[in-house]
Design a binder for these strands. Structure first.
Lengths: 389, 389
DNA sequence: GAGGCGAATGTGAGCGTTCACATTTTTTGT
DNA sequence: ACAAAAAATGTGAACGCTCACATTCGCCTC
């Protein structure tokens, strides 16, 4: 800091004032400024050895020195406290913008013991659903003045999860959104979070853990029932990968719906959510000569796309010879060939609810309800029709 | 902290030792422990009024008190310094795991003036490309021991961008990845970053700014040339939205390639990258009776999907009557109807390069080269063929 | 066993902020 | 005009950590 950077102008400005009070103020102002300058010099001497930032950012002290008030007053202005005289506030704000001061949130966090950061772990974020949830979480957090740290888990292993949560906690996040499989890991997660509130996305957690779930079974039931209502009796299924709760729930719902309609569940193949795996699963279904079916229920839209492609390649017409239903309702699904009948759910809603519950937990407000359920709906397009035989 | 939490066991353990040294050590150990306990009590008294965390996390001091060394020694152990005796290290590690100590990164950041956080701003993250880049950035950063803060910009306005970068800088990020339009905003960005290194994704920045770009023009050239080589003379174009540099570059490359082949660029409609807009653009192209074309070049795969659907709805066969080429090569594109000929680029590569350059800037290493260019390639599938007339 | 050396450990201060309280200044009531 | 109340501003310590330097310890050499 150089002597010239002090706001000497403000000191001498208005020297025509009259009252003794103002005269006194004016008399001391340069001395105060100089004192602060001196202090700044001494301070900067002791930190000479520190790794120098290319441009050291202005601090509360710098601003205070600049306009001749204490750092506390500047802090008050920065935090919008009403306990500052308007005249002072204006002077401080001017100095803040002149020095381009921004608060150091790491320091604030240290002092206040709370942060405006939330963390989120997720998987498969290249997929529409998860990425949509992430965006929504980020956006909701931002609206509440918080920033998002995100970690993608590649294989969702315990060690990867531990590492991610640990580093979030080391960063002192205010809360966590756990958008990976939580079933059977709640104790692990609770331990890792060390008191930091968290919400999970997806079922399989004890009732006291705040969680947002999609009523998967309801969605699949709607879709399957739709096929049954159209007259389909033999319905095949392409499932999601093992290890995902959603896979299991959806598949179970399919079986149950078939059974309760007095029908035998048809053949089932497994994919990994990708279009490619859907293609392969469909091929396997078609190739196993023993199986006869007039419709396929697919556990997500990506795999449904692959299945559609497989059917087309095999010369089968959809929905003329075979009906297909998906799950998720991607923005693209209505442009599939043919436009896909599918189960719609609202990913943005899920993210928003997660954040809402998380903040309730962070603010220690009543945690009820701890479970938000989304009921998906069916979107009927052109990939389903009455069976032709 | 209670007296019982002190590791008294360790003090009395092994009282059968003989040397005077050890005897002396043993003699003082309880006193030292008690002294630390006393200090801890005094300290905790002064901080009684602080907002109490439900579970206050252990600090260096707690660990130090627990095993009777100074906080500095614990710090050394935590940071893997070799200047610690093995015996001490073992004792400290034990206390760390017993107290479940984790360093407070906010405090470390404050003390060291550097953080292990990097920030990233992006748009359209629900799309495959951007989300893939984000994942890749996160993953590369994680490999280098850093965490990612992410902010999605909805409309990429200057004010939104400013807010995002500002809050990142307030969080003291070590570096920034700017994956939004930077052209014409570099001065703004530079000012906002206040000395924090950043890299941009996408062209239109001065040569001294580290940046990762895709050679859009090359990609479009490949695709257009492919159509021309097949014998197409009238090629329509579905462009990305105005305001995106990639839109402009791709479109320019199409015009140029056509011209340099001695052909007149065909009609052009504009979309917003979404499948829906691609559908509508294709409909507009087909409806404007004046235009004749045998192929459509589409600026991204999502819009290409919409276009394919539009063509099918209009009863046009692809590629029999009309060829279609896309751009991006989504994992799904090979399952479109028909599988889409498209331009492939490697999003993960882009993220990885961004982070690599960013860390070079953070570590003040030689910044050469400041520009990494990716040359996309053409993937020929079944949506293109020689024109039928 | 004194001297010297390197390894191990400890000390003090400071990072930029906030909190609780202290002090000063201004306003109000009589 | 004066005390009392209220508003405005300032002070000191703490948050948890790291850095530079100081101190202590154990060991080797002569």
């Amino acid at each position: 800091m150089s002597l010239m950077e002090l706001n000497w102008g403000a000191v001498w400005k208005g020297h025509k004032t009259r009252t003794t009070q103002q005269r006194k103020e004016q008399l001391w102002a340069p001395t105060i400024l100089f004192w602060r300058y001196f202090k700044a010099c001494v301070a900067s001497r002791t930190m000479k050895h520190r790794p120098q930032h290319s441009v050291r950012n202005a601090t509360l002290d710098d601003v205070a020195a600049r306009c001749g008030v204490s750092y506390q007053t500047v802090s008050r202005v920065a935090n919008g406290s009403p306990l500052v005289a308007d005249k002072t506030r204006a002077r401080v704000l001017e100095a803040i913008s002149e020095l381009n001061y921004r608060p150091n949130l790491a320091a604030r966090r240290l002092a206040t013991q709370r942060s405006n950061l939330i963390g989120m772990v997720g998987t498969k974020v290249t997929y529409y659903g998860p990425s949509q949830v992430m965006i929504s979480v980020e956006e909701s957090a931002k609206r509440r003045g918080h920033n998002l740290m995100f970690a993608a888990l590649e294989r969702s292993s315990d060690s990867e999860l531990s590492a991610a949560i640990d580093s979030f906690c080391e960063h002192q996040v205010a809360g966590l959104v756990i958008a990976v499989r939580a079933k059977g890991r709640i104790d692990l997660i609770r331990k890792l979070c060390r008191g930091v509130p968290f919400v999970t996305l997806g079922a399989g957690v004890p009732p006291d853990v705040p969680t947002v779930v999609v009523d998967e079974k309801h969605g699949v039931r709607l879709a399957t029932q739709h096929l049954i209502d159209l007259g389909h009796k033999q319905i095949a299924y392409i499932a999601g990968p093992r290890g995902w709760l959603a896979s299991r729930d959806r598949r179970q719902a399919w079986t149950q719906t078939m059974r309760s309609a007095g029908l035998e569940p048809g053949p089932c193949e497994e994919g990994d959510w990708s279009a490619e795996s859907g293609y392969e699963a469909a091929i396997r279904l078609l190739d196993s000569s023993s199986s006869r079916f007039t419709a396929i229920m697919v556990a997500n839209d990506h795999m449904a796309l692959g299945a559609l492609r497989a059917l087309h390649a095999k010369g089968l017409h959809v929905p003329g010879q075979l009906s297909v239903v998906g799950f998720d309702d991607l923005p693209e699904s209505q442009f599939f060939q043919p436009p896909l009948t599918t189960v719609h759910h609202d990913f943005a809603w899920q993210g928003e609810r997660c954040v809402e519950m998380l903040f309730r937990a962070i603010n220690r407000e009543a945690a009820e309800p701890t479970r938000q359920v989304q009921r998906p709906g069916l979107v009927i397009r052109e990939s389903t029709a009455t069976p032709s035989f």
